[in-house]
Amino acid sequence: MQWHPDDLQGFFKAKEYIDTVILPITSISFKNQAEAEKLAIQKKSIEIITQELERNYAGRIFVCPIYIYQHAVDREQEIARLNSWTEEMLAEQFEHRFIISHDILWKKYEKQFDSHFIWTPSFSMSNFQSDDARLFVKEQTNELSELIRSYW
């Protein structure tokens, strides 16, 4: 399920079955072109991967709209905000909560997250239509879904 009028209709009808939420997070920075392009690819990549997860597990996983933060933000502050977000808005409804990101800088703060934090590699290519990209996404989603299912 996604944050989508049609999906939400289904969600409120079948709430008790949907016990898992994924919050994709990604950052934005205009500091220099190389970094900006890299972050744009990461955003696209996390979008594709979480949508593919959603497509396969629509009946149990709710994928939130992407959460955007500034790349140069104070990470501890951002974690506090993310934690209040996941706790206050998501904890009542969803038993299993995952934050998923391509941003490796979070890895260091992993323990401070109240929800499960998953770092996953982004693809480095900007051609999302290629067969390589498709295979990459397929493998990523397979592994991620295996991980998520291990919590069920």
Partner: peptide
């Protein structure tokens, strides 16, 4: 592949 229960694959 769409499950008739809640739409998983």
């Amino acid at each position: 592949p769409v499950c008739k229960h809640l739409g998983c694959a």
